[in-house]
Simulated scan of single mutants.
Amino acid sequence: MTLASDLDAVRPFSVPLAATGPGERRAVVAIGNFDGVHRGHQAVLSQARRIADEAGAAALALTFEPHPRTLFRPDQPVFRLTPPAAKARVLSALGLDGMIVAGFDRAFSERTADGFVDDVLIAGLGVRHVVIGYDFHFGKARSGTPAFLADAGARHGFGVTVVSPWKDETGGAVSATRVRDALSHGDVPAANALLGWRWQVDGEVRHGDKRGRLLGYPTANLRLPEDCAAAHGIYAVRVRIGGTLHDGVASYGRRPTFDDGAPLFEVNLFDFSGDLYGKTLVVTLVERLRGEEKFSSAEALIAQMDRDAAKARAVLAAMTPLSDLDAVLSF
């Protein structure tokens, strides 16, 4: 077992444990899965950033791949809100200095709570201070509790801060489960409110059947991860291609009018021409306009697509940042 990332997409922001130097050791480390990097996670991460600034130290996030639930229940993979590249992008926008990816395999899961402290936090990272959420558990059978970690810190000379649950305006605790549920029901504004930033998907543009071009709506086709459980339908989107932003409309689903095939994410960019094949698109979902429908003819579909495009333009024209983080990621 190694604590290192071999993921090309996150290497520029990740810090392999074996290569940690003076700037990374004695760091303030926020620990968690941080899937979604929602407002509750941000409370943990901002505490780490604040403590690190006061100490003149680096602020790092220690996270785990794959998601532990996916390891233990491979037949029920977790709908990942932020796969590694997306998580790194959001953490970087929050001002973290690095992300350490721990390979979560069976050997890692069998490590005792004492072993996690000794091998990972002390020998591996030489932590100065650890910041965790109130519900963070670690070690075999989740035996390591926040109280256990606080006691270990007192014995070994590193600080521990436990952050209370972050509650939204309704008084409910913000969680990745709530975000996933909102997205699976197509309630993008609710999901984005819990995140504190607008949810994004990304992928490389691949060749499709060119049907959109024949309909007057050429699309960039992305294949999202199989665990993606976002509701199928039509979305108003903002797309980042390298350093440029473009507005558009996207369809996610099985194309019931034509082949009812495997789920595909198809993006039509407004007022754009150019070759996108092989490029990576980062797509911000702003609002779900409607569900997926089957039309009786191509003409009926085109008429609806015209209405969808007009509505998407109106939604996107009224778009304002949800937060400073959203302003960095989506504007």
Rank of each mutant, 00 (worst) to 15 (best):
H156I: 12
V44E: 03
H207L: 12
V162M: 11
D209T: 12
H207D: 08
K279M: 04
V267N: 10
F295M: 02
R180G: 00
M99F: 11
L281P: 04
F79R: 00
F108V: 06
P16K: 03
A107T: 13
V90D: 06
A107P: 04
A150K: 14
A150F: 07
P12R: 03
A176I: 01
R223D: 15
G248V: 07
D202V: 01
K311H: 13
E169G: 02
V286N: 00
V37W: 14
T161S: 14
N33W: 06
G139S: 14
R178P: 08
I100Y: 13
H232A: 08
A102C: 11
T284P: 00
A27E: 11
F34L: 10
R39E: 14
S14A: 13
A48G: 14
G103H: 13
S14C: 05
N268F: 14
A86S: 05
H129M: 05
G291C: 00
H207I: 11
D35H: 03
F138M: 11
H156K: 15
V127W: 10
L183Y: 04
D247T: 02
Q200H: 07
A182Y: 02
S14E: 06
H232N: 10
L121E: 05
V267M: 07
T177P: 01
G133N: 10
T145G: 11
W166Q: 15
E299V: 10
G196S: 13
G261S: 13
I302M: 14
P189Y: 02
G261M: 07
H67F: 01
F104L: 03
S273N: 09
P84T: 05
G56C: 09
D209F: 13
R11N: 06
K167S: 11
T112V: 13
V90Q: 06
H156E: 15
P74A: 01
G243S: 02
T177I: 00
S297M: 09
V267Q: 05
D168S: 06
I31R: 06
R213N: 13
D271K: 03
R288Y: 01
D326F: 01
D53P: 07
H67N: 01
M99G: 08
A250I: 03
W199F: 08
M99S: 10
L222P: 13
R180C: 00
D151T: 15
I122P: 04
L121I: 05
A102S: 12
P263F: 11
P16Y: 05
P84E: 02
P256E: 04
G139C: 14
V78H: 01
M1P: 04
V174D: 08
A173F: 09
A48P: 12
E299G: 08
A190G: 06
S109V: 07
R69E: 11
V174R: 09
A88Y: 04
M99C: 10
F272R: 04
E110D: 15
L245H: 11
V101W: 09
S46C: 03
L222A: 13
G242P: 07
D151E: 15
H232M: 07
S46D: 12
G115F: 09
G208K: 12
H38V: 12
A300M: 10
